[in-house]
Design a protein around this nucleic acid. Structure first.
Length: 426
DNA sequence: TGAAATGTTGGGGCG
DNA sequence: ACGCCCCAACATTTC
């Protein structure tokens, strides 16, 4: 005799508070099983000691501790998503399935396939907007098409925004009573990472505009990883009164890029502006390695890359500098840099990473124009005058081991301008 | 969320 | 006192 249940599927919304889909599931169903899927198709591409998987794992573990008070737990499954769902549909009589929407191309395809399969079994799926204030087609131009320029998008966002209601209480009585054991990382083929995600800090957001560009100052919030995995609710965050307009703008950028990736999924791997398709990237492998390892001979670039390699994070100002250096000074395809950040960043989010890399390369929607080329020395003077950040990450700076600049700035600048111009002619 | 090149202005040195 | 030059400071244009 099969058990009658409904299911809530956790993905990038790893929290029990203010979780729209979870709340709905528990309100409408007598017995809700919570599941999470370790998707082998995603896992196989990750390093064996991946920091993000460790973060997910420990988050699931603390959620389970919280659920224990209600006699419940999350059923963590491991396999191919479609096979897992086929198995669940076999094992239980499933009444309804709930999850929160994910706007990345891979996720959209996966979720559509899951919904189609379940619908063939007469099981309804319900999906919810949870990880953004405005999604997909919530904010459109008057002609009904999506915005591709940030400022008008932001203005519309601000006019439409209304504070969310306080989150509803979870109907915990409707949780399925079962103690599913969370498998050890080792049994998933992984080991624990020593990368720790720094605690987030909302105290910085009031004078964010004044401090955010200085990588030696604690001027950024460290919220990105928590937003990425949904351990922080975007609604609760945005409703905080102390957010300055600059900080809020950054949260709107996040939603801007999410609607871009949803409405223009090809931009995950193609230039948003196709006229840049003919730019002849040099794509020199050796030079790429020097950029990755932080041995370009430009201190601010190298400090950034070493921060990334060491911590899995990099200060935002320095992300712009390192990305600009790869695209413009070395003329390496932004996709190479995007892929490297994807591998390393704890807070990696496809929409933001692609959007910002295309911004740096000049190929994106509303991007920096191709001729806007950062001068690493000028950036260092403006944002790390005292060499505090640089000295933190470059202990070899004043030794003979530190390399001389791999390419002269003025020469590289001219070369980039010529190469882009040539590409645009075609 | 740039930087370099070019243009303009005005104060001071100096014949 | 005047015109000329120099150049720093600022503004504008260009990439």
């Amino acid at each position: 005799m099969k058990e009658n249940i409904s299911i809530f599927w956790f993905r990038r919304d790893l929290r029990l508070h203010d979780n729209i889909g979870l709340t709905e599931a528990l309100e409408a169903n007598k017995k809700v099983m919570l599941i999470f899927i370790f998707d082998v198709e995603i896992l196989e591409d990750l390093p064996r000691n991946d920091g993000r998987l460790t973060f997910i794992h420990s988050t699931l573990s603390s959620m389970n501790e919280e659920l224990q008070a209600h006699g419940a737990s999350i059923n963590c499954l491991h396999g191919k998503t479609d096979e897992i769902w086929a198995e669940l549909a076999n094992q239980y009589r499933i009444e309804n399935i709930y999850f929160n929407k994910d706007y990345e191309p891979y996720a959209v395809i996966r979720d559509n396939a899951v919904a189609e399969f379940l619908s063939s079994k007469n099981i309804p799926t319900y999906s919810f907007k949870d990880q953004v204030i405005f999604e997909e087609h919530d904010i459109l131009k008057n002609d009904g098409t999506p915005y591709t320029v940030f400022t008008p998008y932001k203005n519309k966002w601000l006019t439409l925004y209304k504070e969310s209601d306080s989150p509803k209480e979870l109907c915990v009585l409707n949780l399925m009573q079962k103690d599913f054991k969370l498998q050890k990382l080792e049994s998933l083929g992984f080991t624990e990472s020593n990368l720790k995600v720094p605690e987030f800090d909302l105290a910085v957001v009031t004078d964010y505009n004044e401090t955010r560009d200085f990588p030696s100052v604690k001027g950024t919030s460290n919220l990105s990883t928590y937003l990425r995995f949904g351990t922080v609710s975007i609604r609760q965050l945005v409703s905080k009164q102390e957010l300055g307009s600059t900080f809020l703008s950054e949260l709107i950028w996040r939603e801007f890029f999410m609607q871009i990736i949803f409405n223009f999924p090809d931009s995950a791997h193609s230039n948003f502006k196709r006229k840049y398709d003919f730019v002849q990237w040099r794509n020199n492998e050796e030079e790429f390695k020097r950029w990755c390892s932080g041995t370009t001979g430009y201190p601010i670039v190298d400090a950034g890359m070493r921060e990334l390699n060491t911590t899995g994070l990099m200060h935002n100002r320095v992300r712009m500098i390192t990305a600009g250096f790869l695209c413009k000074h070395l003329l390496i395809d932004w996709r190479w840099g995007e892929a490297y950040f994807a591998e390393k960043l704890m807070d990696y989010d496809l929409s933001a990473n692609v959007g910002n890399w295309q911004w740096a390369a000049g190929t994106g929607c509303d991007s920096a124009p191709y001729f806007r080329i950062f001068n690493p020395a000028e950036q260092q003077k403006k944002f790390d005058k005292e060499y505090i950040y640089i000295n933190k990450w470059l202990p070899d700076l004043n030794t003979f081991e530190y390399p001389t600049p791999m390419v002269e700035h003025k020469y590289a600048r001219e070369r980039a301008l010529t190469t882009y111009k040539e590409g645009l002619k075609q």
